[in-house]
């Protein structure tokens, strides 16, 4: 079903790429400015939610299939935990990032670890938020449009 709101559709088409770029900016700039995986995940999810609100749920399901959300939910936690296990294998403690790089004075190992961990956070938060939205929006409401 196509929405009849032309202005909303045009504005959304401009805004959604910007929201996604901003989400990734917040994610990868999280070490230098406010931001990080949690915030970026929510911003990215809100881009998909905006798409679903304006172009309809079925279109959004084609862009971001619920299957991805289901897999991504688990994948993010897996990435996070596996960073911990990699640091164990490399001879450190669980989630001890200094073992990833010999340059301890500039904290390069810490930077690698933080980025890797935040990718896990981003994946889980984005996918859980989208999955929850799909779950609520996928139910057909009992209230018909005329009642509004």
């Amino acid at each position: 079903m196509m929405s009849p709101h032309v202005i909303l559709r045009v504005v959304a088409k401009v805004l959604i790429p910007l929201i996604i770029v901003y989400g990734f900016y917040v994610h990868f700039h999280g070490e230098y400015s406010p931001g990080g995986g949690f915030q970026a995940g929510v911003v990215l999810a809100s881009a998909i939610i905006l798409y679903a609100l304006i172009f309809g749920l079925d279109e959004a399901r084609k862009v971001f299939p619920p299957y991805w959300a289901r897999v991504g939910m688990a994948l993010g936690g897996f990435i996070y935990a596996s960073v911990g296990f990699v640091s164990l294998i490399m001879g450190g403690k669980f989630l001890e990032y200094t073992v990833f790089h010999p340059d301890v004075a500039h904290g390069t190992g810490q930077h690698i670890g933080i980025i890797a961990v935040e990718v896990g956070v981003l994946t889980t938060v984005t996918c859980v938020m989208i999955a929850i939205f799909y779950a609520f929006a996928g139910r057909t409401p009992e209230i018909s449009d005329e009642d509004w």
């Binding site: 070490e31 931001g35 990080g36 911990g84 904290g107 810490q110 930077h111 935040e118 896990g120 938060v125």
Partner: peptide, 23 residues
């Protein structure tokens, strides 16, 4: 850690195990 944002450093490194639980 040598990153400017202290909150991210504490979140992902010092309290990384805590954040894993949150995830």
């Amino acid at each position: 850690i040598v990153i400017p944002n202290v909150v991210t450093a504490v979140l992902a490194s010092y309290r990384g195990f805590d954040t894993m639980g949150e995830v």
